[in-house]
C-alpha cells in the first residue's frame, strides 16, 4: 500500500474515533484531550494533502493556543453535575445527522464541481513550495481580508477581557467612591 493512502487511513480513522470521543465522553477534560487528538490528526491529513503551512498552523494555533483557552476555563468552572447527553435529542439527532451526511455525500459526488482550475499547477507548487505559494496569494489578492482579520482578533481580545472581567470589583470601587 502506498504511503500516502496508508497515512490517510490511519489519520482519518484516529480522527473519527477521537471526534466520537469529543461528542460522547462524559468528563469534559477527557473531551478536550480527545479534541487535541482530533486536531493533531487533522493536521496530519493536511500534511498528506501537501498543505504544510496550514498543517503547521493547525498545530500551533488550534492544538496549542485554543485548547489552552478551554483548559483554563474548565479549571475555573467546577465539575458538571448533570447528565452528559440528552436522550430525547439523541433519537432525533442520529437520523437527522445521517440524512445530512447522505445529502453532503450526494452533493459532493454528483454536484457541479466544474470550476476554474487555479493558476498553481502541481509543477509550480513543487518548484516554489507550498508556503511561498500560499503567501504569494495571501499578501497580494487577499491583503485587505488579512488586515480585517487582524482587527477582528484585536476586537475579540478586547471583548473577551471586558466580558470575562469580574463585575464585583467595579461595584466595590463604585461603593468606595460613594462613601
Amino acid at each position: 500500500m502506498e504511503l500516502t493512502s496508508l497515512s490517510f487511513w490511519i489519520f482519518s480513522t484516529l480522527a473519527v474515533l477521537s471526534a466520537i470521543g469529543v461528542v460522547f465522553l462524559k468528563n469534559i477534560v477527557y473531551a478536550v484531550l480527545s479534541l487535541i487528538s482530533t486536531l493533531i490528526m487533522v493536521s496530519g491529513l493536511f500534511f498528506t494533502m501537501g498543505a504544510e503551512l496550514i498543517g503547521a498552523l493547525q498545530i500551533i494555533i488550534y492544538a496549542v493556543a485554543i485548547v489552552v483557552f478551554y483548559v483554563l476555563v474548565i479549571s475555573t468552572v467546577p465539575e458538571f453535575k448533570g447528565e452528559t447527553i440528552d436522550p430525547n435529542y439523541m433519537f432525533v439527532s442520529l437520523p437527522v445527522g445521517f440524512l445530512i451526511f447522505i445529502e453532503l455525500a450526494y452533493v459532493s459526488l454528483y454536484g457541479a464541481w466544474k470550476s476554474n482550475v487555479g493558476m498553481f499547477t502541481s509543477e509550480v507548487i513543487k518548484e516554489m513550495g507550498n508556503v511561498k505559494a500560499v503567501a504569494s496569494v495571501l499578501f497580494t489578492k487577499y491583503l485587505f481580508p488579512f488586515e480585517v482579520a487582524s482587527i477582528i482578533l484585536l476586537v475579540a481580545m478586547i471583548g473577551a477581557i471586558i466580558i470575562g472581567k469580574k463585575d464585583h470589583v467595579i461595584e466595590e470601587e463604585a461603593s468606595n467612591g460613594s462613601l
Partner: peptide, 11 residues
C-alpha cells in the same frame, strides 16, 4: 455531522 450531533445532544 459528528460535530452537529454533539451540538444537539450535549448539555
Amino acid at each position: 455531522v459528528l460535530g452537529l450531533i454533539g451540538v444537539i445532544i450535549r448539555k
